[in-house]
């Protein structure tokens, strides 16, 4: 079992086209699924843990839990969308093939994140600021996303149509992933913060924040709408937490 998982992970890194073919052929997808899931959980947990090293303490555990959780929740939400997009754009794939493909791509991206973790740790250890660490994390996600894109393209069909399917999928993946991550904040944690919350109090949403930012950039300033949803247990309100301020 362990040896088989290692073999699959090696193929995942070395030959994305073979993995994509494997997904399309539906040759017993369980081994690939389990190996990809392991890679996703392990890579994302390591990267999440490293991101929290600047804050340390309980935040390490929280981030190591929440980054994989955000990835997996996003996958659950967007896999049917890729299935529908591929079918309506004339590249129909089985749902099991789409699941294998997306999970394999995520696993590959998570392995890239795992490889980048020491670099990020070193940068954080050298004392780069909070905002720089956010940018560094975003760059790492972009790099990991690129590695996943290759595998996905092979799987959907390496053609203009395949590229269009992936571009449309990106339109669904980005807002969904952003909103999921927004709900599970904070991931990095501010060093000045005294108490480490597992979840922040719900402050509007990622889309709301983008909308308000877009208005602000045009010189229109509005306060966020009052939150109608109750805060989850254990969550803290950023506004109430004076030490959260940079």
């Amino acid at each position: 079992m362990f040896q088989e998982t290692v073999q699959v992970l090696e193929r995942l890194l070395r030959s994305p086209s073979q993995i994509a073919k494997h997904c399309a052929a539906d040759e017993d997808p369980r081994a690939l699924f389990l190996a990809s899931l392991c890679a996703t959980l392990l890579g994302a947990a390591a990267f999440g843990g490293v991101l929290a090293t600047s804050r340390g303490g309980l935040q390490l555990l929280y981030s190591a839990t929440k980054v994989p959780l955000a990835l997996v929740i996003t996958l659950v939400l967007v896999v049917p969308a890729l299935h529908g997009l591929a079918a309506s754009l004339g590249q129909p794939l089985r749902l099991s093939a789409v699941v294998s493909l997306v999970l394999a791509a995520t696993g590959r991206a998570a392995l890239v994140l795992l490889a980048l973790s020491p670099v990020v740790w070193l940068a954080l250890d050298r004392g780069i600021g909070y905002h720089s660490s956010v940018l560094l994390a975003a760059a790492c996600y972009a790099l990991a996303g690129l590695s996943a894109l290759g595998l996905l393209w092979h799987g959907v069909g390496k053609s203009l149509r395949g590229a269009f399917v992936i571009a449309c999928f990106g339109l669904v993946l980005v807002p969904t992933g952003a909103q999921t991550a927004w709900l599970l904040r904070p991931f990095i944690g501010r060093p000045a913060q005294a108490r480490v919350p597992f979840l922040r109090h719900r402050e509007s949403s990622f889309a709301d924040a983008m909308y308000l930012s877009a208005l602000s950039s045009q010189g229109i300033y509005r306060a966020p709408e009052p939150n109608s949803h109750p805060a989850p247990r254990g969550a803290t309100n950023l506004a109430d937490d004076a030490e959260e301020a940079p």
Binding site: V78, A81, L85, P175, Q179, L183, R202, S204, P224
Partner: peptide
């Protein structure tokens, strides 16, 4: 139908 799960999360969690 494929977009339904993602839409459900978005419309439930977006306040505005």
């Amino acid at each position: 139908a494929g977009l339904a799960p993602a839409s459900a999360l978005l419309v439930v969690t977006i306040d505005s």
